[in-house]
Design a protein around this nucleic acid. Structure first.
Lengths: 195, 195
DNA sequence: GTCTATAAGATGATAGAC
DNA sequence: GTCTATCATCTTATAGAC
């Protein structure tokens, strides 16, 4: 397990790109934006990420990995299915409150038709991961009667995912994170989870 | 009430721009795209819409007007609150099935931070209209016990709006309109509406 | 209302020196 | 690994003829 020390230029580039994609979209930031904020020249960025498609794909992979880590962390720290879903929603809330960011993959979903194929595949995989995780939590929760819902866990997982992404999307334009929290609470309450 | 005859160049421009924004986003289409599809030169477009911001704003106003018309149409044709909400969801479904389009305003919500102020205001107004309409239907529906929900009509309206927008956003990347329909059904079922 | 011509700026990307 | 210099291309927008 080498390196994790002074962050590395590549990671600092990804940090800046991540924020830019989350707030402006994939096509509405440029190498010039990153170069300026990093205090480096545009040409140097190409040494770390040959093309913008490259940058985007590796950005997605890192985000996906981190998100998987966050989900694993929830499973370690939190046991009750209802609390796990609350912690899940809190992940989204944190992103939204951090500078009015959109979920990286929600933003890329909007940009989808203009993305290089490699990035598209990663975006789908991200949502697959989320849906599977939610399905498992929902399924286990219903088995122990901690959660209640009709229909398939997969369908219910999609309702949650759709609702949280949409709530984020719209709360952003009103600069009103509380609106997101309200919808999240409604969605969880429908499963029998009390705030 | 003059004119509605041969569509007019301005309206044909808006038709093309509308589809482009809904599929690619506001910053990812150009005057060149429209000029090509319309068989006209780029410079001629500026005669009808001086700037791209102009085009976007007038696009929003037209979309908002039409949507208001569609909502009024539902109120005329459909009486039961549950059916009205089904008809409302069907509006979204129609857009999604028409070439995998995103709701115009959902797309502009993603583009929000890069939009000219005039367009931003129109996008917010659009969502305001939707939320008010939904609130009224929900409120009336609960009064007659046709619909059931806890909390405020406004909060419930936002849950519906968020859910439908998010369901559209994600169904698009899987090219799976049925996924949207599934989430829409779940959301309506939670209000006591049976398909 | 549409055209040609043109402008000024941004974009992602490359070559080659240090 | 970063730099300067350069590139072709695309972007919105304008001037002025027809």
């Amino acid at each position: 397990m080498p390196r994790s020390a002074p962050a590395g230029t590549a990671d600092r580039i990804l940090d800046l790109a991540e924020r830019l994609v989350q707030t402006r979209g994939f096509n509405d930031f440029s190498y010039a934006d990153i170069a300026e904020q990093l205090g480096i020249r545009k040409a140097s960025l190409h040494h770390h990420f040959a093309t913008k498609g490259d940058l985007g794909r590796r950005l997605m992979v890192r985000y996906h990995d981190r998100f998987r880590g966050a989900l694993a962390g929830i499973e370690t720290r939190v046991q009750a299915p209802g609390r796990r879903l609350q912690a899940y929603a809190a992940l989204y809330e944190g992103v939204l409150r951090d500078g009015g960011r959109m979920c990286l993959c929600g933003m890329l979903a909007a940009d989808f038709s203009t993305l290089p194929k490699g990035i598209r595949d990663e975006v789908r995989r991200f949502f697959d991961t989320n849906e599977r995780w939610l399905s498992r939590v929902l399924s286990a929760g219903r088995r122990t009667r901690a959660l209640k819902f009709d229909g398939s866990p997969e369908g219910e997982a999609r309702v949650l995912l759709d609702g949280l992404e949409g709530a984020m999307l719209i709360a952003r334009i009103y600069e009103d994170p509380d609106s997101f929290v309200s919808t999240a609470r409604h969605l969880l309450a429908a499963l029998g989870i009390r705030g």
